[in-house]
Simulated assay, not measured.
Amino acid sequence: MTSLDEEVLFDVRDRVAYITLNRPESRNALSQAVVARLSEVFTEAAEDNEVWAIVVTGAGDRAFCAGGDLKELNRIAQEGGRFPVPMTGTERNLFELVLEIGKPVIASLNGPAVAGGFELALACDIRLAAEHASIGMPEAKRGMGANFATVLLPRLVPRSVALTMLYLGDLMPPDEALRWGLVNAVHPAERLAEETELFVRRLVANAPLALRRYKEMATKGWELSVPAALRLNVGPNPYLSEDREEGVRAFLEKRPPQWTGK
Rank of each mutant, 00 (worst) to 15 (best):
G60S: 13
E47G: 14
P112V: 07
G60K: 10
L73T: 12
I106Y: 03
E50F: 03
R92T: 15
T88A: 13
T90W: 07
P112A: 03
G58A: 05
E47T: 12
L70H: 01
N74Y: 10
A107G: 07
G80K: 08
A107N: 07
A53I: 14
F83L: 14
I54V: 03
V114S: 06
V105G: 08
G81R: 08
E47C: 13
D48I: 04
G102S: 11
V51I: 11
G68P: 10
E96Y: 02
A53R: 06
R75F: 08
E47L: 14
L97N: 00
I76H: 10
G58I: 07
C65E: 11
R82L: 14
E91I: 05
R82T: 14
L120S: 08
S108A: 05
V98E: 02
L70K: 11
R75Q: 04
K71I: 13
L97E: 09
D61V: 09
A66K: 15
E47Y: 08
P86M: 12
L73S: 05
F118M: 02
F83S: 13
A113L: 00
L97R: 07
V98W: 11
L70M: 14
G58W: 03
E91P: 10
A113V: 06
P84T: 09
E47W: 09
C65N: 06
L99R: 15
C124K: 00
A123Q: 05
A59E: 07
M87S: 12
F118L: 04
R82W: 05
E96G: 06
D61K: 08
A53F: 12
I54S: 15
E119A: 05
L97A: 09
F118N: 01
V85L: 13
E91Y: 10
D69T: 05
L122W: 06
L120T: 03
N49K: 11
N93E: 14
G102E: 06
I101F: 03
Q78P: 00
V105E: 05
V85R: 15
Q78A: 15
L109W: 03
A123Y: 02
S108Y: 01
A66R: 15
Q78W: 10
E100W: 15
R82M: 11
A107E: 03
A107Q: 04
C124R: 04
E79T: 03
F95E: 15
E72A: 05
N74G: 14
L70Q: 14
L70R: 01
F118G: 04
N93I: 10
L97C: 05
I54R: 12
L109D: 04
A53S: 13
A113I: 04
T90N: 09
L99C: 00
G89K: 12
G68M: 11
E72Y: 00
L120Y: 09
A115K: 07
A77I: 08
S108I: 00
L73Q: 15
V85Q: 04
A66D: 12
K71S: 06
S108M: 10
V56Y: 00
G116S: 03
V114L: 01
D125T: 04
V51Q: 07
E96D: 12
Q78T: 13
V55Y: 00
K71V: 08
N74W: 06
